[in-house]
Design a protein around this nucleic acid. Structure first.
Lengths: 149, 149
DNA sequence: TGTGCACCCTCCCATCATGGGAGGGTCAAG
DNA sequence: CTTGACCCTCCCATGATGGGAGGGTGCACA
């Protein structure tokens, strides 16, 4: 199978197939004499795994860990589960952040006339003199690390 | 006010203060003879505006648009509102995506024993032969554009 | 056999917002 | 006058992704 066909079979773009190989997420594909990459059914299965993990929002490093576990017959399902639940927590945190933004914006937009006049609570809120809610420069938020013990 | 003080006053890191200036989001700060940037209260107010917009998840380009509107006395609040509601839609889309991931993962994790044994529905699901839910390489998702008419 | 098109290759560049760090100047307190 | 805390610029890195140039390959059809 050529890379184009592999792309269609997995839903991963040609660019990303080459990238995943380059960064070592998957083993380099075999090459035909022409230099073309050749994908086996097994390769495709692995890539589909990657694709699904990606669709669940896992980062490449986490996908690598999942792949290792998948291919390791003596894994403990506990390890998989903890990876997954840690990831869920990360996603939930992002979700909460979004919730907050959305709530604030919807509230402000709701109170905005949205007409030809300049007055607008949205801008007023953004430009408020009020210093109350000052946070400091965000520190590198605890990056989605595995087992932040 | 020095850049360090401005950082504390606005909650924007020193690095980002310089960056915002470099990309033209805000006008270059005046300079002392030493070459140090000097921030006025007005600068600080503008930067706080930027900070708040950023905290609401607006991208730099959108913040630039908001700043323009803010500083334009003859704006129509409708323009501000449409910017805001478009952004809300973008955020809601991201939230839906997160929700889907979370739901799937929680379901799978729930059914995972999480013990010493290797069997794990999470890996099973990721590695399923099943070809049903194949999507094609994601196209450049409609980037958070203003007024995607 | 030739030709053309669709495909593949590598390599480099861009994105976006953010931080790290090197190498060097400035300022203020002791 | 030294020392430490600032500030300056410049370059590099991140993560996942795409764009495109410059050039080779493979196949189908005339």
């Amino acid at each position: 199978m050529n890379i184009g066909e592999a792309s269609k079979a997995t839903g991963i773009s040609v660019k990303m197939l080459r990238y995943y190989e380059e960064i070592g997420l998957v083993r380099p594909a075999l090459r035909a004499y022409s230099g073309y990459r050749v994908y086996s059914d097994k390769n495709i299965a692995t890539l589909r795994f990657v694709r699904r993990a990606r669709d669940l929002g896992f980062q490449v490093k986490q996908i690598a860990a999942l792949l290792d576990l998948w291919q390791n017959g003596s894994r403990a399902s506990a390890d998989v589960k903890s990876l997954a639940t840690a990831h869920v927590q990360e996603l939930e945190q992002r979700r909460r952040a979004l919730d907050e933004m959305i709530a604030t914006l919807e509230h402000l937009a709701h109170n905005c006339h949205g007409d030809h006049r300049p007055d607008c609570p949205i801008l007023q809120s953004l430009g408020a003199e009020d210093t109350a809610a000052q946070k400091s420069p965000r520190k590198k938020a605890p990056r989605p690390t595995f087992a932040v013990a």
